[in-house]
Design a protein around this nucleic acid. Structure first.
Lengths: 256, 256
DNA sequence: CGAACAGTTGAGACATGTCAATTAAAGTGG
DNA sequence: CCACTTTAATTGACATGTCTCAACTGTTCG
């Protein structure tokens, strides 16, 4: 099967052979834009105090097409990334070559925090839609100079949030039956869309049934059946990847 | 050496009530001691460079008896902790009051990194055996002064390692059948004991079947049956919580 | 000594995985 | 532009792994 990451099948160039960060094209010249510190804070939804905003450092953006890899296992750590736009999939590949989906990062999420401890990234991160990332380079993270102390605190904060999210997801995967897990998954997705400023009642899932099943540790058929069951129950509307939440309350309390 | 709490089952004293590392009680008075920076690095197995060791800051230790809580959900964040001795259980409690086991921290592991982002700890951490922790206080973590820049880098490193471990555990919980999951769990435990300097072939599990089942997302009966199946297969020896690994290779490759 | 807990084992019910067929959508190539 | 292929998704039938409920044992602790 084809692997780990679906590539945009139409592009002649392979994501594998092509460093995703370097764009071949012409007009992409203008796409190399920059983000400032306040934008990063806004994206992360950082709610703490910031001491001095006289910091005018800029962060380079990085654009990805759907199917391209943002980070790959083993690549040298070159900083953290904040998702500015788009949806992604984080996964690990075990010794048998089987993929295990860990998370679906979206706007405002942090990437790459697993790369600090060994100096290389430990997971695969692939774009499910076209994406826009903001790079926080290593040099700034570990800067000796006091120039951007705030950045360090924000980094701690963001990495800690990653841990909490992962723990919650891990806990969620526990006991309940498939339908409950899928209902909870949709509930979480809805809240995430809301937090990003989109509609919590109507959205398009960026990932396949297979990815969802892998993430929730059930088969894709079970996911499909769970969707159908929730639709028959009148709780949601499903048409391929388009989801409508008819009753947030029923979705939230499903199975309790 | 004698593992963490390992002692032969015939001894009259119980590992649970007796601090494995050793000694009975007289000198407990003197146990309010301190750890220095090098000891923290050694415990964490930090392999990176450290710039200046002129840092003579000391870290307070905290002793726990089996069953005591080290951290509790909602308590204000007051620093990170490094496990110096003993075994613990990290879990989250969901809205229904159900417990979800997230990890089993042991010597050299980091606690509390989920508390940074909201200023309060987000999980329950309880001692399974008598434990000894080293506290890295908030003040030092976020120190403005340059006094211990190294500490910040080590903290990043350790938190990142937490993320990797959690991701790996999460990925592990995927697809395989109960017996494969349990075999993998024992394999991981064995490697952890080895990394701590104890025997990888003979150790005593600090947690109950219920905790293991909760962690692996199966029932305690399934865990028990899997242990029995692995014993019948000649791969391990089981007697209550005492485990002997007869074939590391068979354990590692089980189910592939 | 008795109560509570940890662990093992068995039997039956049921949820999920597996295999297979079908449809719709999208990409591929002449 | 239209066949052709591939992929995503749905649904059904069947096999099977796991949960549930239950009995029983050994250990710990009051």
């Amino acid at each position: 099967m084809m692997s780990l990451q679906a590539e945009s099948s139409l592009s002649g160039t392979r994501w594998l052979s092509q460093p995703s960060f370097s764009q071949p094209a012409l007009k992409l010249e203008k796409d190399e834009r920059w983000s400032d510190f306040p934008e990063v804070l806004r994206l992360l939804r950082f709610d703490g105090p910031v001491r001095h905003l006289d910091d005018d450092s800029l962060f380079r953006r990085r654009r990805l097409k759907a199917g391209q890899a943002a980070l790959r296992t083993g690549l040298p750590f070159d900083g953290l990334y904040v998702v500015r736009l788009g949806a992604m999939k984080t996964s690990m590949v075990d010794a048998d070559g089987a993929e295990h989906v860990i998370a679906f990062p979206m706007k405002g999420d942090l990437l790459g925090s697993d790369g600090i401890c060994q100096g290389k990234y430990m997971s695969e991160v692939v774009a499910l839609t076209d994406c826009d990332l903001i790079r926080i380079p290593t040099e700034l993270l570990f800067a000796q100079e006091r120039s951007c102390n705030d950045l360090e605190r924000v980094a701690y904060w963001a990495i800690s949030r990653e841990i909490v999210q992962e723990q919650s997801a891990y806990a969620m995967t526990s006991l309940p039956k498939t339908e409950v897990r899928v209902a909870h998954f949709l509930w979480i997705q809805s809240r995430r869309f809301a937090a990003m400023g989109y509609s919590p009642s109507q959205f398009i899932l960026p990932m396949t049934r297979r990815d969802i099943g892998n993430y929730l540790n059930v088969t894709l058929e079970s996911v499909s059946r769970a969707f159908s069951a929730l639709r028959r129950a009148g709780i949601i509307g499903v048409e391929r990847r388009e989801i409508r939440i008819h009753s947030h309350e029923a979705l939230r309390t499903f199975g309790t």
